Amino acid sequence: MNTQIPALSVNKLTKTFDVSAPWLNRMIERRPKLFVEAVSDISFTVEKGTCFSIVGESGCGKSTVARLVTGLYETTSGDISFGKGAGGRPIRVQMIFQDPHSSLNPRWRVGDIIAEPIREMKLRDKETETQDRVRELLETVGLSADDALKFPHEFSGGQRQRISIARALASEPELLVCDEPTSALDVSVQAQILNLMRRLQKELGLTYLFISHDLSVVRHMSDNIAVMYLGKIVEKSAVEVLFTAPQHPYSKLLLATIPDIENPARRVEAQAGEPPSPLNPPSGCAFHPRCPLAMDICRQERPKLQDLSQECQVACHAVS
């Protein structure tokens, strides 16, 4: 039995955004306030040294989860707690953003970008030690120590993401929240960055919360996966369980869209319709308008996440 304290525990997390029109417009047009529940009552844990991935279509709420965990958004309700790091202090968390072109300050040299968290957190006593650490980090992510003197625009997209990773590592975190870190990169460069992240995880004992819409990327990185749909987790399981025996109809739909190398000419028929608007979500199970297994109860009652086995939980009335 695993008694290890998780690196991250999320319990009944909910985030609601006020998307109302400006006050004057609402008064003139007599329009009510509008709210969107981007994340709805989700729970999961991430064990130390593992990679937990959250997947789903754009707008499902997965990036909101990343920003809640890193403190960029305040929670509406629910709890986020972290395990203990070195010396009993709370685990340090850093984020790797999706777009390396916009997440790096174009006016700063790379050395200063990486050194900033070291200086702010006073992780080194002397400036010479800070500069040594910057050079060490650049070499760790596969760049040259001399690159510290350059500006971000002098690098390719893949190299910029390596700089972003070096900056994230500068604060000596135990948990990295990765918000689609390879989606802005070419496929060949994606593989290089993913291999780098796996190597760093092994060498440094890192824990990852990995956000992605690309299931092939997720399979390469993950130990456990949560599938989100319209702000809710609909399936949560070990990675190979999901890929070999998906249970929720939405998980099956996502897996069916992965290109098949052995049969590239196959036709994948997507389920009819688009994801519903979060401003006006369907009653009951949010997936029922697109689900081939939908029953009357699906339109009336929201399914709860239930244990199907030790390695799989599913929220679906049609699966038992």
Rank of each mutant, 00 (worst) to 15 (best):
Y229M: 07
R30S: 09
L293T: 14
G61F: 00
L68S: 00
D79E: 13
G231C: 08
F35M: 02
E74K: 12
V93F: 07
M295I: 10
P90Q: 02
K15N: 06
R290F: 00
N11G: 10
P264V: 07
E269A: 09
E74R: 06
P152T: 08
N263I: 00
M121C: 15
L13I: 06
S40C: 05
A168I: 09
D260H: 10
K48Y: 02
G71F: 02
F97K: 09
S188L: 15
S63K: 01
R26P: 10
I261G: 05
G157R: 03
L206H: 04
L215G: 13
G157A: 06
W23K: 10
K122H: 09
M221K: 03
R92Y: 00
E139K: 14
C298F: 04
S58W: 00
L255R: 12
Y229L: 13
K15C: 13
S156C: 11
E127G: 04
C298M: 09
S81Y: 05
E127L: 07
I297F: 11
T244M: 08
V134P: 01
R92A: 11
L123Y: 06
L176E: 04
S283C: 08
C285M: 12
V319K: 03
A168R: 02
G231A: 07
S237I: 10
N195A: 13
D146K: 13
A265I: 06
V187F: 13
V55P: 01
M228S: 07
F155C: 01
E274Y: 11
W108K: 12
S251D: 14
Q310A: 15
A166T: 12
R26G: 10
V46A: 00
I91T: 02
D79S: 11
S156R: 09
A318Y: 13
R119A: 06
S251Q: 06
I114C: 07
M27N: 07
P117N: 15
S63E: 05
A145T: 03
I91W: 02
I42V: 14
R198M: 14
L185F: 06
V69T: 00
L206T: 06
G88Q: 07
F287Q: 05
K15W: 09
G142E: 03
D147P: 01
M228L: 12
G205L: 14
Q192C: 14
R26V: 06
R26S: 08
D147A: 02
M95K: 06
D214M: 07
E269T: 13
V189G: 13
R299H: 15
I28A: 03
L204I: 05
P106C: 12
I261L: 14
T257G: 05
D223N: 15
S216Y: 07
R290K: 12
V234C: 09
V93G: 04
